[in-house]
């Protein structure tokens, strides 16, 4: 594949989108064919299928759960679910879309469970003696970067599961709002308002980090 950016001539972007869509469609068809073969008894088809999808699913799960271990667990849960229940795929949607939905929902469930546990831990911590950070001068700069990244991560993690899911699906996964509505099983208007609410909350949660990003942008 040509790594150079597409020249900006009229029609080239549309052509690039069409080519990308064709490639994606081919990949989807291939996965659907593998899933069909597995459903009909070809055991090796599942192994090929899982090898093809696991990294894509991991990316989705990582963005949703925010950590590697949880993301790998989610992907594993999703693949086991597919193995156990491939009959539930009714071919009304492409196989990957179905698998994607399964994975996203498992990750969101995990996120919700974790939010509950985190809340209990937070309450418990309030009653325990805390430890104050111990700044080391030579690490200040690195800590500042880590601090900013942590604040960003915390801002995303502080979003309610539904808002986080929509930010991840739109921003990192590049799904259209209509596709998100399909994956999440809700109305388009709900997706729009939730995305707006999510950005509103993000802005509030990470005002400092955003300021810095704007300065970077201007520089």
């Amino acid at each position: 594949m040509n790594p150079d950016p597409m020249p900006d001539v009229p029609g080239s972007k549309a052509r690039a989108r069409r080519v990308a869509a064709d490639v994606a469609q081919q990949a989807e068809d291939e996965l659907s064919a593998l899933a069909r073969a597995f459903r009909e008894g070809e055991e090796a088809a599942f192994d090929r299928l899982q090898a093809q999808v696991r990294e894509r699913l991991y990316r989705l799960a990582y963005r949703l759960t925010g950590n590697t271990e949880d993301a790998l667990d989610v992907v594993q849960d999703a693949l086991v679910k597919v193995y156990r229940g491939v009959e539930a795929w009714n071919e009304r949607s492409a196989f990957y879309s179905w698998l994607y939905r399964v994975t996203a929902n498992l990750a969101i469930d995990r996120l919700r469970r974790r939010a509950k546990v985190r809340e209990v831990r937070r309450q418990l911590r309030q009653h325990q003696p805390g430890t104050s950070p111990d700044p080391v001068p030579e690490l200040v700069e690195r800590r500042q970067i880590e601090h900013d990244l942590r604040r960003l991560r915390e801002a995303v993690e502080s979003l309610p599961a539904a808002q986080r899911a929509i930010v991840v699906l739109r921003h990192y996964e590049g799904l259209s709002l209509r596709e998100i509505a399909e994956v999440r099983g809700c109305a388009l208007g709900t997706v729009k308002s939730t995305l707006h609410q999510a950005f509103h909350n993000l802005r509030r949660a990470m005002e400092g980090a955003v300021r810095e990003a704007r300065e970077h942008g201007r520089a």
């Binding site: 991991y58 990244l149 930010v167 921003h171 955003v210």
Partner: peptide
């Protein structure tokens, strides 16, 4: 502000599993 928020989201790294983590997976 929305654009800056989106730019900030882009700065969050995607941590890929190590070969050992994939093996355990």
């Amino acid at each position: 502000e929305i654009r800056a928020s989106a730019a900030a989201l882009d700065r969050l790294p995607l941590v890929l599993p190590s070969a050992e983590q994939w093996r355990r997976f």
